[in-house]
């Protein structure tokens, strides 16, 4: 009789509505999935060692192309953001850095979404951007 109005995956795909915390949630999911795929690819890549030196070298050649460099740069960014934001989440989810519960007074600013948390998110994004730039510099010998 009733139609369940589930937001589904598209609810995750529209992160801007709820502030930087929701953007961080979305990035955390995307980078987590990206790193999972990288991990699987990495196992496949290193398994080529078993086929001898020539196979291993030809596999490494793939990372020496422009596409390979872009891919590795993205991996660096995903890794740094996921680590930085992950540390913030682990601390927050253990109940630290959220402020103290107190009587709610209008205009109701949520204490758990405080500046410390926002700053950690911005720092994680900033560090990821810096690491990507450094990685690009190393790969392109700048």
């Amino acid at each position: 009789m009733e139609k369940d109005r589930k937001e589904g995956i598209k609810g995750m795909a529209n992160p801007g509505r709820y502030g930087i915390e929701r953007v961080a949630y979305w990035l955390m999911r995307i980078t987590g999935l990206g790193l999972l795929f990288y991990f699987i690819g990495h196992i496949y890549e290193t398994s080529n060692l078993l086929d001898g030196k020539a196979a291993w070298n030809s596999m490494l050649e793939l990372t020496q192309t422009t596409e390979g460099h872009i891919f590795l740069t993205l991996v660096i960014g995903m890794c740094v953001f996921h680590t930085g934001n992950g540390i913030r989440l682990m601390i927050g989810q253990a109940g630290f850095g959220l402020g103290k519960p107190s009587r709610a007074d209008y205009p109701y600013t949520p204490s758990s979404l405080n500046m410390k948390n926002k700053l950690c998110i911005y720092v994680s994004i900033g560090l990821a951007a810096l690491a990507m730039m450094y990685g690009l510099g190393v790969m392109y010998d700048v």
Partner: peptide, 28 residues
């Protein structure tokens, strides 16, 4: 996953995200 959207939209300043994380502190 501590996205905090629940606290963003609460019209009474309940801050459910904080309650959930503090509750996790008990379990951990």
């Amino acid at each position: 996953h501590f996205a905090g959207s629940c606290s963003q939209v609460c019209p009474k300043g309940v801050d459910p995200a904080m309650g959930i994380q503090l509750l996790r502190g008990y379990l951990l």
